[in-house]
């Protein structure tokens, strides 16, 4: 089946609270790629207090401070079972930073308070680790992913949990350790930048998983050449500066 008659329905969850690291860019990257292929994309938002949303084709949750996570908690507990069902059914989902933490089992705050997460990702996160801020490369089954990380979260994986990938380069101290989490077609990662515009391979993965549910094949075409060229140039500069140490004060 051809792509041009299709509409991809993207749901961004808590865009105001969990959206401080350009997370709308992840939504925009998916929509832009789909549109350039001649299809349409719609973007919906779920905000605190909104009715439980219909199942979308792709879900995006972004990053934010701990106070923002706290502010969405009540609503997120209501949404959690629905999100969990979607993930179990294979709906692709991208959660970055605090969004990933929220979907985990438990968040430990710097004050050592324990906050229950939504239990969709088999991880617990501790926000009192040391600071990691800088470029990184994550080798993942989807492909190498390049971007920026900025957090002080230590992740612990439950038995049998599958990380998204392994950090292979960077100077923030995470190189050699695992990054993120993968459950079915749901991916959690620390990589911002935001991650999808910089890494079309990951964007294509999410779109392909969404469309295969309808029996539609997806692959990048010449319509994506300019996006791919600019992303590739941007990644090349990041790779060239991968050892850049950014002082935080």
């Amino acid at each position: 089946m051809s792509i041009d008659a299709e509409n991809l329905d993207i749901l961004q969850v808590y865009p105001d609270e969990l959206g401080v690291t350009g997370d709308s860019g992840n939504v925009l990257a998916i929509a832009t790629r789909v549109r350039r292929a001649g299809a349409t994309a719609t973007v919906r938002h779920h905000r605190i207090g909104d009715a439980t949303p219909e199942r979308p084709d792709v879900v995006v949750i972004g990053n934010g401070p701990l106070s923002a996570v706290r502010s969405v908690l009540d609503d997120a507990r209501r949404l959690g079972p629905v999100l969990g069902d979607w993930v179990a059914a294979g709906v692709p989902l991208l959660a970055v930073g605090a969004g990933m933490e929220l979907l985990g089992q438990r968040i430990l705050t710097p004050e050592r308070e324990s906050i229950d997460g939504l239990g969709i990702f088999p991880i617990t996160t501790d926000r009192a680790g040391s600071r990691h801020a800088g470029y990184l490369v994550v080798e993942s089954p989807v492909g190498p992913i390049v971007g920026f990380e900025d957090h002080r979260t230590t992740t612990t994986w439950a038995d049998g949990a599958v990380p998204f990938g392994r950090v292979t380069a960077g100077v923030t101290g995470t190189a050699g350790s695992a990054d993120g989490i993968r459950v079915a077609n749901a991916i959690g990662t620390r990589v911002q930048g935001p991650v999808l515009p910089l890494n079309p391979v990951l964007t294509d993965f999410l779109i392909a998983r969404a469309l295969e549910r309808r029996g539609v094949d997806w692959s990048a075409s010449s319509a994506h050449d300019e996006l791919d060229r600019l992303a590739s140039e941007a990644r090349a500069v990041i790779l060239a500066n991968i050892d850049h140490v950014f002082s935080t004060i």
Partner: peptide, 9 residues
């Protein structure tokens, strides 16, 4: 400017 993720905002 270390992290420019915000250019998408």
């Amino acid at each position: 400017t270390p992290d420019i993720s915000w250019i998408y905002d």
